[in-house]
């Protein structure tokens, strides 16, 4: 082994994360999403200008995990809370970090209207197709036939509808400047997710409108899998229902992402 001192440090824990150990289950990709957001803020030198709005869900303590000013929204209301902050502090970077129960179910009105207003905030939407924190109930994003604690014999789409595809929906709104879906299931996709987060935040900095990065994420605990199996499940089952891609990139945003 080569002594570290002779080498160049090429990766270290980002400054925008605190030293706190997270409460996330082992291998849960919420942690990856946190890391990427923190790395992006470090690289854009925005740590001191950023206000994070944490959700209700497993990421409820996100305001403790990020080394940023932060606050904690009511379930689903992060986009409204972020709107209040951004309107008063238009030169700060305001982020919401939300799960799929938070954003796609109880908070669907708030996210649609924030996007429709072209609110210059950035939403990190962590879609793990389940309610993680409350113990694995069905979410509007759960896959057809997916077994959850509230759909024990699998999601019956005849009774509960089809998975809600939020990125596709928000992309129809003129106020949305940058809406993309990425996945956290392998290093190559994580790299792409990171780039998208960087772009989304820059879209906000330039005041181009609402930006959101949807991240396909795992819940090994409630899916009843090992962390590695969960990554494979994302690839094998989620990608077909939630195709990755750029759903809305406004002309001005395109210049940034190029």
């Amino acid at each position: 082994m080569i002594p570290a001192a002779e080498l160049e440090r090429v990766y270290e824990r980002p400054e925008s994360l605190t030293a706190l150990h997270t409460n996330y289950c082992p291998g849960c990709t919420h942690g990856v999403a946190h890391r990427l957001v923190a790395e992006a803020l470090d690289e854009l030198e925005l740590r001191e200008q950023t206000i994070l709005v944490a959700p209700v869900g497993c990421a409820v303590f996100a305001y403790e995990y990020f080394n940023l000013d932060g606050c904690e929204a009511a379930h689903g209301r992060a986009p409204a809370m972020a709107t209040g902050i951004k309107r008063l502090l238009p030169d700060r970077t305001v982020l919401t970090y939300q799960g799929d129960g938070d954003l796609a179910s109880i908070g669907i009105a708030e996210i649609i209207h924030a996007a429709a207003r072209g609110e210059p905030i950035t939403t990190i939407f962590v879609n793990n197709a389940i309610y993680g924190m409350t113990g694995g109930q069905m979410a509007p994003t759960s896959l057809p036939n997916q077994r959850t604690t509230s759909s024990p014999s699998g999601r019956d789409v005849a009774l509960t509808g089809q998975p809600l595809r939020v990125s596709e929906m928000l992309a129809t709104l003129p106020g949305a400047a940058y809406i993309v879906r990425r996945s956290l299931h392998d290093p190559a996709n994580i790299r792409k997710a990171k780039k998208a987060i960087l772009t989304a935040i820059q879209v906000q900095q330039r005041g181009l409108g609402f930006s959101m990065v949807e991240l396909l994420s795992t819940c090994p605990t409630n899916w009843g899998m090992t962390p590695a199996e969960a990554l494979t499940w994302v690839k094998d089952h989620m990608l077909s229902i939630y195709p990755l891609g750029d759903y809305k990139v406004s002309d001005a945003a395109r210049e940034l992402s190029a």
Binding site: I2, R9, V10, Y11, Y24, R35, P187
Partner: peptide
């Protein structure tokens, strides 16, 4: 380091002949 959900890993590398920005090197 790119996959670690808990940001536990610090990575060191021999200085490469072609100097690249840190982000570019990893991402």
């Amino acid at each position: 380091a790119v996959i670690c959900p808990d940001a536990c890993i610090t990575v060191f590398r021999q200085p490469s002949p072609r100097r690249v920005e840190r982000t570019e090197a990893i991402y």
